[in-house]
C-alpha cells in the first residue's frame, strides 16, 4: 500500500492533465463552430438584401444582382430528388421494419449502410453516366438523380429507426381489432411515426441541399432563368463554389452571402429536428 506516495501523486497529476485535455478538446470544437458560423454571418450579412433573392447574377464589376435563379434552381433540383428518394426510401423502410427478416432484409440494410458512405462526388459520376452521357447534355434532372442516390440510403435508415420506435403494443392492438397488417402499417405505424419521419426527411434534405460536388457535372450551372428539368440549372452550392474560386471581390461577397443562406437553412432544419425529437412522447 503506497497510497499518498510519490507514485500516487504522479498518477493524480496525469489524471488531472488528461481530464483537462478532454475539456480543452470540447472547447476547441465548440469554439470552431462559433468561429465558422460567426465569421460567415459577419461576412455574409452585407450581401443579404432583397436583390439577392430576386435578381439574376450580374457579370463581374456590375453592381447589384442576386442569386434568384440559383435559389429557385436548388429548390427544384432538391425537390425532384426528394420526390424520387422519399417514397422509395419510406416504402423500403416499411418493408425492413414491418416484414424484413432473413438474408434479403439484412443485405438491403447492409447495402443501404454502405451506400450512405459513398462520397457525394461518386453519386455525381453515376448520374453523369446514367443520364448526362445518354441525353448528351447537362441537366437539372441528372442533378436530381445524383442527389436522390445520396438521399435514398439516408432516408431508409432514418425511417427504419423511427418505425422501430413505434411500440409493438400499438401494432398488436390494431391487429387484434381485425385491422389487416397493411392498414395497420398505414393507419397506425406511419401515422404514429409521421413526425419523426418528417424530421428524418428534413435532415436528409439539409444534408444534400448543401452538396455541390455531385451537381458540378450534372445540373452544371446557368446564368439565366431556367425552369426546364432537361436543361442545365443554376444551384446555390455550385454558384457559391464558382464565386468562391473566382478572383473577384464582389463575387466573393456573393459567395459569403450564399454561404450564410446555406448555413441558415441547415441550422434551422437541424434545430427544428432536435426540438421535435425532444417533444416526442414516450422515451
Amino acid at each position: 500500500m503506497n497510497g499518498g506516495g510519490l507514485g500516487y501523486g504522479r498518477r493524480k497529476l496525469t489524471g488531472h492533465v488528461m481530464m483537462a485535455g478532454s475539456l480543452v478538446a470540447a472547447c476547441i470544437a465548440v469554439a470552431l463552430l462559433f468561429w465558422i458560423i460567426g465569421y460567415v454571418f459577419i461576412k455574409g450579412i452585407h450581401g443579404i438584401n432583397l436583390d439577392f433573392f430576386t435578381e439574376l447574377p450580374t457579370p463581374v464589376g456590375v453592381e447589384g444582382g442576386g442569386l434568384a435563379n440559383a435559389i429557385v434552381g436548388s429548390i427544384i433540383v432538391v425537390g425532384m430528388a426528394a420526390l424520387m428518394a422519399v417514397p422509395v426510401g419510406v416504402a423500403a423502410a416499411v418493408y425492413l421494419s414491418e416484414y424484413g427478416r432473413g438474408l434479403f432484409a439484412s443485405s438491403v440494410r447492409f447495402v443501404a449502410d454502405v451506400l450512405a458512405g459513398v462520397p457525394a462526388i461518386v453519386a455525381g459520376i453515376v448520374a453523369y453516366a446514367l443520364v448526362v452521357s445518354r441525353m448528351g447534355r447537362f441537366s437539372a434532372f441528372s442533378g436530381s438523380v445524383a442527389l436522390a442516390i445520396l438521399m435514398l440510403p439516408i432516408i431508409i435508415r432514418s425511417s427504419e429507426e423511427i418505425f422501430k420506435t413505434v411500440p409493438n403494443t400499438l401494432r398488436e392492438a390494431s391487429l387484434a381489432l381485425g385491422i389487416p397488417r397493411w392498414r395497420t402499417v398505414i393507419k397506425v405505424v406511419l401515422r404514429t411515426a409521421s413526425g419523426g419521419l418528417v424530421t428524418g426527411i428534413m435532415l436528409a434534405v439539409a444534408r444534400v441541399g448543401g452538396e455541390a460536388a455531385p451537381l458540378l457535372f450534372t445540373a452544371f450551372s446557368n446564368s439565366f432563368w431556367s425552369l426546364r428539368p432537361d436543361q442545365p440549372m443554376a444551384t446555390l452550392p455550385v454558384q457559391l463554389f464558382n464565386y468562391a474560386i473566382s478572383p473577384y471581390d464582389d463575387w466573393h461577397e456573393k459567395a459569403w452571402a450564399a454561404a450564410l443562406v446555406l448555413i441558415f437553412m441547415v441550422l434551422m432544419l437541424n434545430i427544428a429536428a432536435k426540438m421535435y425529437a425532444h417533444r416526442r412522447p414516450g422515451r
Binding site: 400499438l170 398488436e172 392492438a173 390494431s174 387484434a176 381489432l177 397506425v188 401515422r191 412522447p281
Partner: peptide
C-alpha cells in the same frame, strides 16, 4: 382483445 398495458392509438 385487451392488453396488459393500455395502448390507445396516440
Amino acid at each position: 382483445m385487451i392488453f396488459q398495458k393500455p395502448n390507445p392509438f396516440p
